[in-house]
């Protein structure tokens, strides 16, 4: 399975561990990632705040490059960063919906000798590709070191599921990362804030606002006794990891929950060496959590509630 690969700026530096682990696990899962030649920044959440057409032109240059190089990659472009994933899919979506916008953006692109036809590139998040193209069964078959004993809080954040220009999971209650973690042998905590916001760029704009959002997430994961938080986005990882000490200082709390990329945990379960997976770059030390792996017995399905007392509880599946 071949894909165009758009790592995005974060994966070059602050989320280098995400890039390293993605590149390490991809071949083992039968994924070939071909980096788009000379890609540029997607503008994050900043460019759209300033000016519309340049913001779209900036994103569309990447789509145009991906279109040029699509023969090698089957027209699919994979982004591991949720913000890049959103921006790329958003530009494609609105260029298709609003022809006048597409016309202006292509006018701008033509100044660089480029052109993009909306709809010609399918933008995918790396998680989508792994759970849906590779599939849970194929991953399960490859697990050589199950993550038994590790309690993980799958953290989706926002932009991978909302607003859903390339939807592959529920915007409020996604489960794909939960299922993936279970397949790897980990115990999954079903905590309510798994799609709440990490604060995004608010750490730079309004620190108290951002720290409060981060605190809520850490508290909720801690309340559910998670050993680690698993992320699918470099911004989420940075905010929860690098700002954890700030949160503790600001609120007088004492959280120390390591925040890992889902590709790192896939790598561990596939028995790839920690160095290759970029471990050691996190602010909150992951070693105590990783040391738990193999200590517990694999979870034996959900606990059955006693029905003898009280009123019956509805189940999540509609058929009950």
């Amino acid at each position: 399975m071949r894909y165009g690969y758009y790592p995005g700026c974060s994966l070059e530096r602050n989320a280098i561990a995400y890039h390293q682990s993605a590149v390490a696990v991809a071949p083992q899962l039968g994924i070939e990632l071909n980096e788009i030649d000379d890609w540029n920044c997607c503008g994050a959440t900043e460019y759209s705040s300033i000016d519309l057409i340049p913001a779209y032109a900036l994103i569309a240059r990447n789509l145009a490059l991906a279109e040029q190089q699509q023969d090698e990659n089957g027209g699919q472009l994979v982004a591991p960063c949720s913000a890049c994933f959103l921006n790329l899919s958003k530009a494609d979506h609105y260029m298709a919906e609003a022809p006048d916008l597409a016309e202006k953006v292509n006018d701008a692109l033509s100044a660089g000798g480029l052109h993009y036809d909306p709809g010609s590139i399918q933008v995918r998040h790396l998680l989508d590709v792994i759970v849906n193209d590779v599939g849970y069964d194929a991953i399960k078959a490859k697990v050589s070191k199950p993550l038994s004993g590790l309690r993980v809080a799958p953290y989706y954040g926002c932009l991978i599921v909302r607003p859903g220009y390339q939807a592959f999971d529920d915007p409020e209650y996604p489960t794909s990362l939960d299922k993936l973690m279970r397949v790897l042998g980990a115990e999954v905590v079903d905590y309510p804030l798994k799609t709440h916001c990490c604060g995004g760029h608010m750490t730079q704009i309004s620190r108290p606002t951002a720290l409060e959002l981060i605190r809520r997430l850490l508290k909720n994961a801690a309340d559910y006794e998670a050993d680690a938080i698993v992320t699918v986005c470099p911004m989420c990882q940075l905010n929860l990891d690098a700002f954890q000490a700030d949160v503790n200082r600001f609120f007088g709390t004492d959280f120390h929950i390591p925040v890992l990329y889902f590709t790192q945990l896939i790598g561990v379960a596939l028995n790839i060496s920690p160095v290759e997976l970029g471990f050691g770059k996190e602010f909150v030390d992951a070693r105590p959590a990783l040391d738990k792996i193999g200590t517990g017995s694999p979870p034996t399905g959900r606990r059955r509630r006693s029905r003898e007392k009280g009123l019956p509880m509805p189940t999540m599946s509609e058929e009950g």
């Binding site: 540029n40 000016d51 519309l52 057409i53 340049p54 779209y56 032109a57 900036l58 240059r61 609105y94 609003a98 006048d100 916008l101 202006k104 953006v105 006018d107 701008a108 692109l109 033509s110 100044a111 660089g112 480029l114």
Partner: peptide
């Protein structure tokens, strides 16, 4: 990229 952005800015801000 600079050429693209310059043209984009000249095109104005409405969709």
């Amino acid at each position: 990229l600079k050429a693209i952005l310059a043209r984009a800015k000249a095109l104005g801000g409405t969709a």
